[in-house]
Simulated assay, not measured.
Amino acid sequence: MSDVAERRNYDLRDEIKAYWSERAATFDLSPGHEIFSEEERAAWHRLFRRHLGDGAGRPALDLASGTGVVSHLLDDLGFKVTGLDWAEPMLERARRKAKDRRRSISFRLGDAENTMEPDGRYDVVVNRHLVWTLVDPPAAFREWLRVMKPGGRLLIIDGDFVNPGRLERFFSALNAWSQRVGLTRPDAPAQPREMLETHRSILSRVHFSQGARSQAVVELLRAAGFADIEVDTDLGEIHRTQAKNWSLFKGLARKNQHRYAIRASKPLDAA
């Protein structure tokens, strides 16, 4: 195949996959990705219980599962978890982590927008920080509805990472200044400039390039057929536990981001 043909066939989805494959090596080093304290773990458990209840052996699908952080939280609560990710380096780390922790979580290679999972298999579908990267959210939401049982619940944890509010901009600027003058340590792990540029390039071309505001996500979920949709912005407990791993200013900036959990249900009379 010629170089021209290869470039033509390398689309945005391939770029996203390659980006997260490269991020796999340092993914668990970042607060906000891996769990860094039992206090934070308990805060996540309370969020999941609030919206999903206890697992009781119910099948759950963790989409874009990465290194398995959310999968392990669901497993803690008694769900029978399948993690799906299309970045093999992420899956390698997820499988190793599950083996080390003696967890019976199944991790599979797959696309969150086209899962290839059977109809009506899961009581629960969960994802964290996936929606903002979706190329075709309407099709993805219809796919998620398809793999859920009638009465099943979807939980989306995400945010608008494009449009910082006034307070977020203020505290982010203070954080950058304090690092520059040596008052606080640099954020770790720092991404190479090339990776930051790749991230910005991808973000400028996905569906939510103008920011994944919760109401926009809700409207697409409703159009896909979901019902009983609720937006939960009460994530302060989680943010407080994570902030202990950041500088004061970065923690305040994170607190003022538009982050949310959206719970939605598949109607009982849906096919």
Rank of each mutant, 00 (worst) to 15 (best):
Arg240Asn: 00
Arg222Gly: 11
Ser247Asp: 10
Ser247Phe: 00
Leu268Thr: 11
Gly251Thr: 07
Ile35Leu: 06
Lys99Asp: 05
Asn175His: 10
Glu143His: 09
Arg49His: 00
Ala243Tyr: 01
Asn175Glu: 11
Arg93Gly: 09
Met1Thr: 06
Leu235Gln: 10
Val124Pro: 05
Pro118Leu: 06
Asp111Tyr: 05
Phe141Tyr: 09
Leu252Asp: 03
Leu61Arg: 12
Ser204Asp: 07
Glu38Asn: 15
Ala261Asn: 07
Arg7Gly: 10
Ser247Gln: 01
Lys149Gly: 00
Gln210Asp: 15
Met195Asp: 00
Glu38Ile: 00
Met90Tyr: 08
Ser178Pro: 02
Ala190Pro: 13
Asn245Tyr: 08
Pro137Ala: 04
Arg205Thr: 09
Gly32Tyr: 03
Val69Gly: 02
Phe249Trp: 12
Ala18Val: 07
Pro186Ala: 15
Leu203Gln: 15
Ala42Trp: 04
Leu84His: 05
Ala188Gln: 12
Arg254Asn: 09
Glu219Trp: 00
Ser178Ala: 15
Ala98Tyr: 04
Gly32Phe: 06
Glu197Leu: 15
Leu130Ala: 14
Tyr10Phe: 12
Leu167Asp: 00
Gly57Phe: 06
Ser209Cys: 02
Val162His: 09
Arg200Asp: 15
Phe170Tyr: 14
Arg96Gly: 03
Ala173Arg: 10
Asp119Ser: 11
Arg108Phe: 01
Glu6Gln: 11
Ser65His: 04
Ala224Gln: 07
Leu183Ala: 09
Leu154Gln: 02
Val4Tyr: 12
Gly120Tyr: 04
Asp119Gly: 01
Lys97Gln: 09
Pro150Gly: 08
Val181Cys: 08
Val147Pro: 01
Gly55Phe: 07
Glu219His: 03
Arg240His: 10
Val135Ala: 09
Glu92Asp: 14
Ala140Met: 07
Asp11Trp: 04
Arg93Ser: 11
Arg108Lys: 14
Arg95Asp: 02
His51Phe: 08
Ile16Glu: 07
Asn9Ala: 15
Asp269Cys: 00
Asp76Lys: 05
Thr115Glu: 01
Ala87Met: 10
Ser172Glu: 10
Glu38Met: 14
Gly236Arg: 04
Thr26Gly: 04
Val231Thr: 13
Val206Thr: 08
Val131Gln: 05
Val69Tyr: 03
Pro192Lys: 12
Asn245Met: 11
Ala94Arg: 02
Asp85Arg: 05
Val4Thr: 14
Ala25Glu: 07
Ser204Lys: 13
Ala270Leu: 08
Gly68Arg: 02
Met195Ser: 14
